[in-house]
Computed example of a mutant assay.
Amino acid sequence: MKNAFKRWWLPVWLVPVLLGCSKSLQVGYDYDSSVNLKQFKTFRVETEKGLAQDPLLGSELNRRRLDDAVTKVMEQKGYKLDQNDPDIVVKYMTDVKDRQQIRSNNNYSPYWWWYSPMPNNYSTYNYQESRFILNIYQDRSSKMIWQGWATGSMKAPSKKEDRADIMQNIISDILRSFPQATLDTYSRK
């Protein structure tokens, strides 16, 4: 009986714990349906110019981490880095917006009409929303063909080593819907 309880209790306890550890970033993407995304073989990584970067997320340290993360994820997808004549250019940007959420806590009771008017409690929650945006341009025409983003509240990592891993996981989540390079896209040397 004790072992059956342990086997039943562990999954019930583990599910809420794992859900509590889930990411708070929401990922989305959009693309130009008139372009065959599987035709591209090579890429280059740049920061998006002309747009204001967040001073912390867009710092020189984080730009290097983002460059490395985008390069690693694109190479894992089978694309080849080419600084001189790439098929596509992956540009990224980051920003942080101050957000505010107002919550209402109505104390509904079946007897509220009997005792008094209903109390209504309001609370305000201030937070910062981070955004990571990847824009992919066709190099020859400079036309945007794909855009992906992750947005939401992001906690600071506990160790310095975690920062590069966090960036790579975010970029991997954003590029998950971008197609893999096909095996015949380039010859392996």
Rank of each mutant, 00 (worst) to 15 (best):
V17T: 00
N135A: 13
R140E: 04
I145T: 06
P16C: 11
D184N: 15
V45W: 02
A164Y: 00
I88K: 01
T185I: 10
D67I: 00
V12I: 00
Q100L: 03
D32L: 04
S187D: 14
Y111K: 09
Y115L: 09
Q26D: 15
S141M: 08
K72M: 11
F132E: 11
K77D: 14
K97H: 13
I145H: 07
Q180V: 15
Q100D: 09
N3I: 12
M144K: 05
R131W: 00
M167I: 03
Q180R: 02
V27K: 02
M74H: 01
L18C: 06
V45R: 11
M118Y: 11
L51C: 14
T94P: 09
T71Y: 02
I174H: 09
V45L: 05
N135E: 15
Y127P: 07
K159A: 14
D82T: 10
W13C: 15
I170G: 10
V45Y: 09
S104F: 13
Q147D: 09
K23M: 15
S172E: 13
P16S: 05
Q168E: 12
Y137W: 05
Q76T: 00
W114R: 08
A181L: 09
D184Y: 03
V15I: 14
A156W: 03
M1N: 10
Y92N: 15
D82E: 03
Y111W: 02
R176G: 07
Q83N: 15
I166N: 08
A52E: 10
M74E: 06
L51A: 10
M167E: 05
Q128N: 13
R64Q: 10
P157L: 08
M144T: 10
T182A: 14
V89L: 07
S33E: 13
D98Y: 06
L57S: 10
N3E: 13
R131T: 10
R63I: 15
S141Q: 11
K160P: 07
S177Q: 14
V15D: 14
K91S: 04
S187G: 10
L14W: 12
T42P: 02
Q76W: 06
D30Q: 13
V70L: 00
L175K: 02
Q138K: 03
D30T: 12
T151C: 05
I88A: 08
I171H: 04
K38G: 12
W149R: 08
P157A: 14
D32M: 04
N106H: 08
I170N: 03
P55V: 01
K77S: 13
I170K: 08
Q76F: 02
Y108G: 13
I171C: 08
T71K: 06
V73T: 05
G78W: 00
C21E: 14
K143F: 13
A181K: 04
N107S: 13
D165W: 04
A150T: 03
Q168G: 04
Q83D: 08
S153C: 03
R103K: 12
Q128G: 07
Q138Y: 09
Y31W: 07
I145Y: 01
S33L: 07
D68K: 13
